[in-house]
Amino acid sequence: MSTTTIAAAPPVPRVETPLQRFVSEFCASRLALLGLLIFTFIVVIAVLAPWIAPQNPYDLAQLDIMDGRMEPGTVGGAGFTYWLGTDDQGRDMLSGILYGLRISLTVGAGSAIIACLVGASLGMIAAYAGGRTDSLLMRLVDLQLSFPAILAALMILAFLGKGIFNVVLALVIVEWAYYARTVRGSALVERRREYIEAAQCLALPTSRIIFRHLLPNCLPPLIVVGTMQVARAIALEATLSFLGLGVPITEPSLGLLIANGYEYMLSGKYWISFYPGIALLVTIVSINLVGDQLRDVLNPRLKK
């Protein structure tokens, strides 16, 4: 008997959940995977800083001014090697960087999450309410976005003063608009779809429509924007701290560490600025690599 059947056997479609497809598409870029790996590593060492750092850089009792500005690899008075050298206070740069990462990441992620919550809510309100609320909110967004973030943050901090809380506040104020615009854009597209109208005709509660129907559709672009904004927030915080308007000197973030080394760099003592800069750079690049790939995977416009 022949094994051939009359109808052509339909090719078995690969059954993949959207999540599986997302994961496999994301992993298609080895660079992005590397970014994710590095970023995870950075988060882990930042979280574990108090346990793995050779010294507590905030504890002035542990610092020895005699060990100031030592070259990388020197063994200090406390008996351990300063692998990345010391700053003018005799602070071990490696420890300073680990603790600085904690602050940079906290400020970056914290401000991004708050800005996301605020922005997404306002964007959703604008999309759902429409009309005057919408145009008012969007005017505000346009105004905010047309003004450079660095300047806005600079001014806010100039009037409010230094401090971690103020930095986070300033970052939230300059960043919420990105989220608002993103969410409103996707929500509007989705809102015009017929099924939303159907849901409204069925008199489903507004909250259900928003959370079950609108929000899930806004998530992919929100994730992309959010990832990029975390990187931006970290860079912005570092810049503000470098300009002397960010975190207080007692809890130096990466930006402040770099600023501290600025004056010594001209005399060739590069490591005080150099290594915190590398840490900052690697953090931001790894987040951007992940964000880039996320955008390519989640952007339906680029799909063929």
């Binding site: 660079l31 990187a231 860079a235 570092a238 810049t239 470098f242 300009l243 930006g255 770099i258 600025y262 760099m265 001209l266 060739g268 590069y270 600025s273 150099f274 800069g277 900052l280 750079l281 931001i284 690049v285 951007n288 690599l289 880039d292």
Partner: peptide
């Protein structure tokens, strides 16, 4: 393209410092 990602990611002030370190110092 890889360089351009770097250009987006590099904090301006730090690049400035590095430029000074290399070309001036």
């Amino acid at each position: 393209m890889a360089t351009s990602i770097l250009g987006f990611s590099l904090p301006t002030f730090w690049v400035g410092l590095m430029l000074i370190m290399v070309f001036a110092v």
